[in-house]
Design a protein around this nucleic acid. Structure first.
Lengths: 226, 226
DNA sequence: GCTTATATATGATAATTATCATATTTTAGT
DNA sequence: ACTAAAATATGATAATTATCATATATAAGC
């Protein structure tokens, strides 16, 4: 059982507000898990009796739409927590979480979590601020989806992936999404997404190498994204 | 100065968790305001040093998109609170609030609000749950916008207006939005919105009478909305 | 390493949606 | 009540996006 006190990712989430005593308790109540790429952490509608702290890796949060397609609502990476909303609302999760690469996560039972929540005001305030931040992002995202064209959304999403998750040594985007996943992030048909990527490639804005995508002209992409 | 203790709308928001003593204090610190149709309650980017409790009327929350159009993110009506997210995040508001009809609102300064927040756990938990509910709604909304056609979104929005805000004695929708506003809710061009409304009318799904809209075939609209 | 399945790519075409033009109706201001 | 301005409506057309078909490339399983 690893020590939460020594875990660096703690610093990036609301958990940084926990006291030393609380961190010791956390080390005891948490369970560590390895999740393989493609595996489901939890599924829409499930009761998740706690939250997950992502120690390493990236996952997608998806929601099944009325037409039967999965839509990727957001990507979540190390340092962030999963399942906070549902824990506080005391409701099933409304999104599914699926690993995009191998992950290490810690599960913290709801009862322990709520204990910290009730006794450490600083911590609960942090959680609250995080959720408020999520809400703001969600509203911004909504407006982008509603008002921008598919091309603009693709450019914006590529830049987002670049800025948020960075790149490998060969300059390719660190998060590797399939064309299908990329399409389901920007809300378009897979073929349309592929076609626009080809267009961007022809315009020398990006370079395609299998699943690898390299952004070659960030400024022009920014102009397209608006 | 009216008594918050006797105010019915209190029952519909997080404020219902306040104690009698807190309600008395609330009566003293709040200020009442009448907002005329079309007037702005607050504007995107502003520092709103408190929250608004809607006693009567409906307003729209909008966000300016990159293309210069206002997008209506959501509608808020009596019983609900405005500005909670921004108060907790300690950030400027990210949305503008504009009255769709004459309104009565009460403004509660941040300092008093945060006092209740710190000392009444039941109340802060209620606020939190409300915000979590908003986040869930926002995610659902995002998926709808991304995956549905304009026609489906229009049908869905009409049903939403019907279910959420009800109808007048003549069966017309209580919230009266201009075609432009309706378009900016579903994320389409005004002309497209008008055209689809005309189509719905020809199919006998709705009746149009100036700004008044009457839903005539709710089941068929549901089928279109999915 | 070969075979099958899956992902990516591209063409052809249809459907959806936006834009521009213009007519008509409604609303607002004097 | 009259005029100007704004909102609604509709046609014509262009642009965007989806769908279906099919080819090629890549990955997965044995």
């Amino acid at each position: 059982m690893s020590k939460c006190e020594q875990c660096i990712v703690r610093e990036f989430s609301s958990l940084k507000a926990l006291t030393k005593a609380e961190l010791l308790k956390l080390s005891e109540c948490k369970t560590s898990h390895v999740i393989k790429k493609g595996e489901v952490i939890f599924e829409e509608g499930e009761h998740v009796n706690g939250i997950y702290c992502i120690k390493d890796g990236i996952c997608k949060l998806t929601k099944l739409s009325a037409n039967g397609k999965d839509h990727i609502v957001k990507l979540v990476t190390k340092g962030e927590l999963l399942g906070q909303r549902s824990m506080i609302s005391e409701e099933p999760v409304n999104l599914s979480a699926v690993a995009l690469e191998d992950m290490q996560v810690c599960f913290i039972p709801k009862s322990d979590m709520m204990g910290f929540f009730d006794h450490n005001n600083h911590f609960s305030m942090n959680v609250m601020k995080t959720i408020c931040g999520n809400l703001k992002e969600a509203d911004d995202h909504t407006v982008n989806l509603a008002q921008k064209t598919v091309k603009e959304r693709l450019a914006e999403t590529l830049l987002y992936l670049h800025n948020t998750f960075g790149k490998n040594e060969d300059d390719s985007l660190k998060v590797q999404l399939s064309r299908d996943e990329l399409a389901s992030m920007i809300g378009t048909a897979t073929e349309s997404c592929i076609r626009l990527l080809s267009d961007f490639k022809k315009l020398d804005l990006i370079e395609l190498n299998g699943k690898k995508i390299i952004l070659k002209d960030i400024n022009k992409l920014k102009k397209i994204a608006d």
